[in-house]
Nucleic acid binder design. Sequence first.
DNA 1: GCATTATATCGAATTTTTTAGAAATATAAG
DNA 2: CTTATATTTCTAAAAAATTCGATATAATGC
Lengths: 100, 100
Amino acid sequence: MDALDVFKALSNEGRLKILDLLKDPSSHFHCESGVDMDKVGVCVGEICRVTGLGQSTVSVYLSQLERAGLLESTRVGKWTYYRRSKDAFAKIADYVRENL
Amino acid sequence: MDALDVFKALSNEGRLKILDLLKDPSSHFHCESGVDMDKVGVCVGEICRVTGLGQSTVSVYLSQLERAGLLESTRVGKWTYYRRSKDAFAKIADYVRENL
DNA sequence: GCATTATATCGAATTTTTTAGAAATATAAG
DNA sequence: CTTATATTTCTAAAAAATTCGATATAATGC
């Protein structure tokens, strides 16, 4: 885990907002293609729609969050679904408690 | 606690280095004025000397870290001694685990 | 093949952060 | 009160991050 990358990813309001929305996808987003958002994640376009941020901005944000290990993604057809990493946040909490 | 301020404070290599050095002051710094560094903290000039960073840079860094609640300071005579906050890091760890 | 849709990447303008040097402030010592 | 030292604040230039629109890539359906 690159702590600096993680903290940089977390030091932006828009990215924190996305992380928060992704805690409970089905209550914030809806999905045309019928995948289970709570399992597979949410596609880029939906995140744009809900946050009001531009498409390229959201795409970059999601890449940063994924590179830092906070999100995971799966490509299904033309959609890329992003979801929260299952254990990243507990690991970060442990890191903060033990190493920071 | 302003999480964004905390993560911004943590998203810089120099500031992370300072936090690390301040974990064990007496093994990295020495003190002319004879205060107990492990209790009171380390003065700005010493942090400049050890990190090699400019004095105004270090002063700004320390202010940012203090504003985010990660450091505390005490002025004694002409020196300002900075030390790690006793419980900030456990609180941040809890925040990450529960709210992020 | 071509048109459409979703996402990623590029390029550029804007904003923010970083950082150093200079000036200002505060304290101590003579 | 003057001088020396430690720190903070001011200023400004350089570097990095933000953000958008345009373009490129990838997948779908005709």
